[in-house]
Simulated scan of single mutants.
Amino acid sequence: MAYVNSKKYGASVQLYTKINGDISYYITYKDETNKLKRAKIGDKSKGVNEHFCFQKRNEIVHKIQLGEDPLIGKKKKTKTTFKDIYNDYIIWAKGNKKSWCKDEQFFKNHLVSFHNKNVVDIKPKDFEDLKQEKLKILSIRTVEYMFAVARQIINHALKNELIKNYTNPLSGGIVKIPKPDNSKIAFLSKEQATNLLKKLQDENNTLYNLTTILLDTGARFIEIASLNWNDINMTNRLIYFKATKKGNARYVYMSDRVYNILSSLERISNLIFPSSNLKQRLQMPKQWQEIVDELIIGNKTINKYRITTHSLRHTHASWLALGGADILQIKEQLGHKKLDMTLRYAHLIPSRRHDLIKEVFSA
C-alpha cells in the first residue's frame, strides 16, 4: 500500500492502510535544512485522526520557524517486544488462518523466552540457541512449525511497519530451520499396534478411540480433531475428510472397529472428538506419548524413528503398501496432493515385476 494524501489537508497529512485494515497517520514537513521529512503520528485504532495530525504538524513547523528543536520534549521511544507484534499478528490470524489456535499455542508454550524481548534486539544466534534447546525435547516437525510461526509473526510486523530497519533472521536462510527427513518413516508392527490398543483400551478409552480411528483411516490428527457428525455417513460407512492446505478432500471407508466406536459415541458436540471444554483438540493428549514410550523400549531416545502420533498415519500407509495396494491407491487414501509424498512407501509394495516377466514372456 502507498501513502495517500489527506483529502482535507493534502500532502501535509498522509494515510497508510495496513493489512489488518487499520490506518496509520503520517505528517510531512521540511526541517531546518529544507529537507522533506515524514513522521508517524499514530493509528486510527488508537484514536488518532487527520485533524489531530494537522495540529501536531503545525506545532512542529512553528518550532522550526522559531529556530527550536521540534524533538525536544518528545517522549523516548519505547521498545516493541515480540509479544507486542504477536498481539497484532494474532488479531490478523484469527480472521485469516484456520490454524490460528495452533499458532497461539506455539507462541505461549514454545516461544516464551522471546515474549518480552525487544524485537530488533533478537539476533540469529538467539534463534540458533532456541533451536538447539528445543530439539532436545521436541520433534523436528514441532520445531519446524515453531520457527514457521515465529517467522510469520515477524514478517507480519515488518509488512505493517510495527518494526523497521530489521531483517527477519528466519527468512532467507539466515537461520537454518530444521526439516524432517520424510524419506525416513517409523511405523508400528501389527504386534506393537495390538499391544498398544489393548493397553489404551484398559487405561484410557478416549485415547483408544483416537488411536484406532487414526490407525484405521490414515488421517492426520488435525483432520480427526476437526471431524464433525455431518462428515459421517453411517449407512454407507464413509468418513468425509475436507480439503486442507496440505491434503485433498476424500472419502475413507470405516473399518469394523471404527464403525463400532462411532456408533457408541455420545453426541455431546458437533465435533466427534471434542476436548473437555467441547472445543477442537489441538494435539493428542500427552499421556498417549508417555504410554507409547513406556510400551516400546528405547522409543523416547530414537529421534527420527520415534513412534509419535503422526506415526499412526505412516503405519496405515505402510500396512496398505505391504498388503499390495498400489501407489495411487495409497495417495488417494492419504489425501496427498503430490505423488512425491506417497513414493516414500513404494519400497514396501511387494514387487511382482519378475513374476510378470515370467507370465508375459513364457514360452
Rank of each mutant, 00 (worst) to 15 (best):
E104Y: 02
F107C: 00
K108A: 11
N109Q: 14
H110Y: 14
H110K: 11
S113E: 14
F114Y: 00
H115G: 00
N116Q: 08
N116G: 11
K117T: 08
V119R: 01
V120F: 10
V120T: 15
K123G: 05
P124Y: 03
P124M: 06
K125T: 12
D126V: 00
E128A: 13
E128Q: 14
D129K: 14
L130F: 08
K131V: 02
Q132D: 15
Q132Y: 15
E133Y: 12
K136F: 08
L138A: 09
T142Y: 09
E144W: 09
Y145R: 14
M146P: 01
V149M: 05
A150T: 00
R151S: 12
R151W: 06
I154D: 01
N155K: 11
N155Y: 05
L158P: 06
E161R: 14
L162K: 07
I163V: 13
K164A: 13
N165D: 15
N165C: 07
Y166C: 03
T167M: 10
N168P: 02
N168C: 07
P169T: 07
L170Y: 03
S171P: 08
G173I: 13
G173W: 14
K176Y: 10
K176G: 05
P178M: 10
K179Q: 15
P180E: 12
D181Q: 15
D181A: 11
S183I: 10
A186K: 13
F187P: 03
F187K: 06
L188N: 07
S189G: 11
K190G: 06
E191L: 11
Q192L: 09
A193K: 10
N195L: 15
L196Y: 01
K199R: 15
D202Q: 11
N205E: 13
L207D: 02
Y208S: 01
T211Q: 02
T212M: 13
T212V: 13
I213Q: 01
I213Y: 03
T217G: 05
G218L: 01
A225L: 08
L227T: 04
